[in-house]
Amino acid sequence: MCKNALTEEKFRELDAYVASLPERKGALIAVLHKAQEIFGYLPEEVQLHVARLLDLPAANVYGVVSFYSFFAEEPRGDHVINVCMGTACFVRGAEIILKELEADLGIKAGQTTPDGLFSIDALRCVGACGLAPVVMVDGKVYGRVKPGEISSIIKEFMEV
């Protein structure tokens, strides 16, 4: 079954979550977090559903979704590669790592490879400055990454 299929079941899970909320006032962001957790991202269909659940104008929901960088409107790749662009990583060469990664995968930060395998995100500080520059793939942290090491990191995930 396709991972991002917008199944009935997922909508029901979201409905149940909203029903369980003690208060709907101000709950939009929490509901969007839940929706993203369930669906993986927030396509229009899901945003509209959230708008109806909370009785909010769709524009309101969209305005919020588009404001926060945590919310994705496009499906993410199977593996999300986060390059930390915190200052500590920046001064230790994170930019070069990011460029190399972009060149390797042929996509820009914020995009997903056509095969849906990888997404790249530039992240603001993982907080592992001692390990700068840091790359995180699906939550696994690679510290003190040197140019040239990127390809082997990617390979690890291609084989899985």
Partner: peptide, 13 residues
């Protein structure tokens, strides 16, 4: 007592 630093940074490392 052996204390292991297990904050995000420690775990990351």
């Amino acid at each position: 007592r052996v204390v292991v630093g297990m904050a995000t940074c420690g775990i990351a490392a």
